[in-house]
Simulated scan of single mutants.
Amino acid sequence: MPVLGLLETDVLYPDLLEDYRSYGHMFRTLLSGLDSHLEFRHYEVQQGELPQDLSECDAYLVTGSKTGVYDDAGWIAPLSDWIRQAFREDARLLGICFGHQILAHALGGHAEKSDKGWGVGNHMTRVEHLPVWLNDDCSHFQLIYSHQDQVQQLPPGARRLAGSEFCENASWFINDQVLTFQGHPEFTPEYFRRLLERRRECVGSDLLDAAMEAISQTNDSERIGRWLLEFIHLPRT
Results as ranks from 00 to 15, higher is better:
D136Q: 10
V45T: 13
S146H: 06
V127L: 07
V11W: 09
C202E: 15
P185E: 02
Q101M: 01
W172Y: 12
P131M: 00
Q85M: 09
V120F: 09
V45G: 08
K116Q: 10
E230W: 01
G109N: 04
G95M: 03
D71N: 11
G157H: 04
W75Q: 11
L107V: 08
D35I: 00
V132R: 13
L12I: 05
Q177D: 07
G5Q: 02
G109Q: 06
P2D: 04
V132I: 07
D136T: 14
V151N: 02
S139D: 15
G121D: 03
L54M: 07
P131N: 00
G109T: 04
Q152R: 11
R223W: 07
G183I: 01
R199C: 05
K66E: 11
A91P: 00
L16D: 05
C202Y: 12
D72C: 15
A162V: 00
D149L: 03
V11L: 10
G74E: 10
G225S: 03
R236K: 14
S164D: 06
C202D: 15
D35S: 02
R199N: 07
L207G: 03
V178G: 01
H105R: 09
C138M: 12
H42K: 09
P14Q: 07
S55Q: 03
W172P: 03
L107K: 06
L134D: 09
G119L: 00
Q152M: 15
D206E: 14
N122M: 10
T63K: 10
W82E: 02
D209E: 12
L94G: 10
L179N: 06
F173P: 04
I102G: 02
L50W: 00
D209G: 01
C57T: 12
G204C: 03
E165N: 08
I232D: 08
D15F: 15
F181Y: 14
T188N: 08
P189D: 03
R199S: 06
Q47R: 15
L6Y: 07
L107N: 07
V203Y: 04
G48P: 12
M26Q: 05
E18D: 14
F187Q: 05
Q177L: 08
I102F: 02
S146M: 09
